[in-house]
């Protein structure tokens, strides 16, 4: 049991990676009502873009920035030229889910085709450990943690204090009313997908750093955890996704220690199911709605 605290460190790192991913995923849902199953595949794509950048001699952090920008553009283009046309035709919610599943497979196999089925890894320097109480972190893990925190604060600042962020919330709340207030909903939706793609891209690279390898199925596996975090917090609730990321991230690592690695996902999802039995709309749904943080 004396491993509980040290593994809390791993949990926090997992949560830091999960946070931008879950927030990006939930932001897409609240802005457009699309549950984007291809989100994991987009993360993988961005992780490989970063790999290419590091191969070209860029530092991992510059590579991450480049991958995040690529992820943002890919996400916005995907929404504008694939999902929006489908939505205009009146494709149902489940129809859209199927479209994004198809896209996920397409991206995944494209990545395999280009970069091959074998995992690659980023050249990470400075393996020195930093000890914080019973927890220890590598330097790159600490940077991942810092980036996670920056994304949390940045999302909060964007949605709460900027005109564009408030417009995103208005469109998510009531698209027609937002348009009748003069907001170009299409442009704001593009912005929301740009931001969520940025977070997804960065999260992909962060995941590659945490796992110390990047494979074409990486995002696919991680998607389950993203969905769990988003659902736990109440889908569409940005602050809920942050809390969900923290809970799922820590649970995954703690249960790996307490019950053994094979049981980690099972116990994390058992908790998810339990929470949903008690609060079907997620932890923060009620509070979040009243606080206006959707």
């Amino acid at each position: 049991m004396n491993l509980v605290l040290p593994s809390l460190g791993f949990g926090i790192i997992t949560a830091s990676t999960l946070l931008p991913a879950a927030v990006g995923f939930t932001l897409q849902f609240s802005a457009t009502g699309v549950l984007n199953i291809a989100f994991g595949a987009q993360m993988t794509f961005a992780a490989f873009i970063a790999y290419v950048c590091t191969q070209a001699g860029l530092s991992i952090w510059l590579a991450m920035a480049a991958a995040a920008v690529c992820g943002a553009l890919a996400s916005a283009l995907l929404n504008r030229f694939l999902l929006t046309p489908f939505a205009r035709r009146g494709t149902t919610f489940f129809g859209m889910v199927v479209v994004t599943i198809a896209l996920a497979l397409l991206v995944e196999y494209a990545v395999e085709l280009i970069w091959g089925p074998l995992p690659v890894s980023y050249p990470l320097t400075a393996p020195g450990l930093v000890h914080v109480g019973p927890m220890s972190f590598t330097h790159s893990q600490l940077v991942v943690l810092a980036i996670g925190v920056v994304f949390a604060i940045g999302t909060h600042a964007l949605l709460r204090y900027t005109r564009a962020g408030k417009a995103i919330r208005a469109v998510a709340d009531n698209r027609d009313l937002a348009r009748s207030s003069g907001i170009s909903a299409q442009r704001i939706t593009d912005l929301a997908w740009l931001v969520s793609g940025l977070m997804g891209g960065a999260a992909g690279v962060m995941l590659g750093i945490s796992l110390s390898s990047v494979s074409y199925t990486m995002g696919d596996t991680f998607l389950l955890e993203i969905v769990a975090a988003a659902v736990l917090g109440g889908v569409g609730q940005v602050y809920g996704a942050m809390l969900g990321a923290l809970v799922i991230g820590v649970l995954l690592q703690e249960s790996a220690i307490v019950l053994g690695g094979a049981y980690a996902p099972i116990s994390a999802f058992a908790v998810l199911i339990l929470v949903l039995l008690i609060r079907p709309t997620g932890i923060l749904a009620g509070a979040a709605k009243a606080k206006g943080v959707s």
């Binding site: 417009a167 919330r169 208005a170 998510a172 709340d173 937002a178 206006g292 959707s294």
Partner: peptide
Amino acid sequence: DAFGTMTVLENLEI
């Protein structure tokens, strides 16, 4: 007729 998830002030800002 108003944005329920936002404050009164934010509604006016929108």
